[in-house]
Design a protein around this nucleic acid. Structure first.
Length: 303
DNA sequence: AACCAGGCGCATG
DNA sequence: CATGCGCATGGT
């Protein structure tokens, strides 16, 4: 049923909502969205107002429904832009598929993961905090820590007895004490890193706009790594997920290395030359290649 | 019960 | 520039 609170977005070529949803719902407990019956539920905060949306597939369209909250025409346009960006719908990925197709080791991905898009994290602050949380710990635990943080400090909207959260604002986390973070299982170092990043965002020393405005990839990377807690891996992850930089390769990422080993592209983790050689073949699509390699780490549930 | 996990900063050669 | 180490703590 289409009503005034529903928006239809045409689905582009090489886009599979199911593949994207599968990724969002793989075997981890992400607190910033909910999947039910194949539909995506997500809370958003727009101009201080909490919204709840549901995204589903409707024929040749994605349907975005506003379940809670109120927005005007401009708000609707922003909502559509948000979803298109989140699922990378405006990026024609055929060239990437052509590259995969000509690569014997990876060609199967064009069928197995057909239409999977690089799911983004539009909020740069969130992307950086998430990668700090995820540094050097297993993902199951990382998602637990993120949930504790979000449920303690994030705004929420409730519907049908269920709460949906948005990531906390930097201004709030800038005032949090180290002890509060350690209580939710941050290490002492990560607590310092995150408070520092929150303060940088709260004061305007660091922002997505500022990073975007820099002239090139290296400058953007450098502007990120000057902050404590943002190393090469985190900077690349943030550039890949939030700024959608094709060159954002999280070098050293253990999952990436494992995936490369699984595909017999490297034998051990020190073969940096082979890794560079592979990525040089995917110029312009490096981050997509990383994303697809990460995808390959989780086996699809046959059920 | 070890060993590992979607690293980082800092100190040393 | 490369290597080594401590950090912290849950998963497997």
């Amino acid at each position: 049923m289409i009503n005034s609170n529903s928006i239809l977005v045409p689905i582009p070529a090489l886009f599979s909502f199911q593949e994207c949803v599968w990724f969002l719902n793989r075997n981890y407990d992400d607190c910033l969205h909910e999947i039910r019956e194949g539909d995506v539920y997500k809370a958003l905060e727009v101009n201080g107002q909490m919204l709840l949306i549901r995204i589903s597939e409707n024929g040749a369209f994605l349907e975005i429904e506003l379940l809670e909250g109120d927005i005007d025409e401009e708000g609707k346009a922003n909502l559509v832009a948000y979803v298109r960006e989140w699922f990378d719908m405006d990026n024609p990925i055929q060239p990437f598929y052509d590259l995969l197709q000509s690569d014997g080791r990876l060609a199967y991905m064009t069928e197995s993961y057909k239409g999977l898009r690089l799911i983004g994290i539009s909020n740069l602050f969130e992307a950086i905090c998430w990668s700090i949380i995820g540094q050097q710990i297993n993902l199951s635990f990382a998602y637990k820590v993120k949930r504790a943080l979000v449920e303690k400090f994030g705004n929420k909207i409730t519907r049908g007895g269920q709460s949906y959260y948005v990531f906390p604002e930097p201004g709030l986390l800038a005032e949090v004490s180290k002890e509060e973070l350690k209580a939710i299982q941050f290490s002492s170092q990560k607590a310092d890193y995150m408070i520092g990043i929150a303060r940088a965002f709260a004061s305007g020393t660091l922002s997505k706009e500022l990073i975007v405005s820099l002239p090139d990839f290296e400058a953007r990377k450098k502007a990120l790594t000057v902050h404590k807690g943002i190393g090469v891996w985190t900077a690349n992850y943030a550039l890949m997920k939030s700024l959608r930089e094709p060159q954002g390769i999280p070098y050293g990422d253990i999952g990436l290395l494992n995936a490369l080993a699984n595909h017999n592209i490297i034998q051990d983790r020190k073969e940096l030359g082979k890794i560079d050689a592979l990525f040089s073949q995917y110029a312009g699509w490096e981050s997509y290649l990383v994303f697809y390699l990460w995808r390959s780490l989780t086996v699809r549930d046959s059920a």
